[in-house]
């Protein structure tokens, strides 16, 4: 078993931004905040499984937000995560039309952090809807895009993981794959709808 790492808020944000040992950072977020936030969500009607799902989405959203230049550590990470989790859970409830007087009261009484978070969350709601689209891309393309855009490998390093002859072939493949994926995204009914509206 690996030794656990402890992060200050600043160190955690730096680790996320650099993509350094992201697994440790995610694991740390879980260890520090999962139980507390899940209990909180369960008070608002989430089942244990739903609370865990919301926390998972919360961590994904937080990593997305923390990478943005506009994100500043004005609030503690725990506070920020709580605000994200609340937003996600109440949006879920809204979709299911299960919003009760208690949740509506929460909507009215949101503090500044929660207002800020709601701006971020709206932006990523669409991404959430498109979840799974990448899996529909053919495997070689998926791999090329992940190696480049997530693993941040150079063309030369990518060659070690791909059956292509040289860097130019990998570069051309990446162009084609990103364009193919963009076409898939654009043709998704949700995106077509957003363009028409």
């Amino acid at each position: 078993m690996k030794a656990e790492e402890f992060y200050t808020d600043e160190a955690l944000v730096a680790a996320i931004r650099e993509g350094r040992n992201l697994n440790h950072a995610i694991s740390f977020l879980y260890r520090q905040h999962s139980d507390k936030l899940s209990s909180f969500l369960m008070k608002y009607g989430a089942s244990e499984e739903q609370a865990q799902d919301v926390f998972q989405d919360t961590v994904v959203a937080y990593i997305d937000i923390a990478k943005k230049d506009s994100y500043r550590l004005d609030a503690k990470i725990g506070t920020f995560l709580a605000a994200i989790a609340k937003n996600i859970w109440f949006n879920e409830l809204k979709k299911k039309e299960r919003s009760t007087a208690r949740e509506k009261l929460y909507e009215k009484g949101r503090d500044q952090v929660e207002e800020d978070v709601s701006h971020f969350i709206q932006e990523r709601e669409m991404k959430q809807e498109l979840h799974g689209l990448l899996a529909k891309l053919d495997e070689p393309c998926r791999k090329v895009l992940l190696l480049f855009y997530f693993e941040n490998l150079s063309m030369k390093e990518m060659l070690e993981h791909l059956p292509y002859e040289n860097e130019q072939v990998v570069r051309n493949k990446k162009y084609k794959c990103l364009q193919a994926f963009t076409a898939m995204v654009k043709n998704h009914p949700l995106m077509a709808g957003s363009r028409n509206s």
Binding site: S27, D64, A135
Partner: peptide, 24 residues
């Protein structure tokens, strides 16, 4: 559109990594 696709690729990868940590 291309920028959005790149953001989606990155988010999908993070989503999978978070799910894996949760499973572990």
């Amino acid at each position: 559109d291309l920028q959005f696709s790149v953001a989606l690729v990155r988010e999908e990868a993070v989503r999978e990594q978070v799910a894996q940590v949760r499973r572990d």
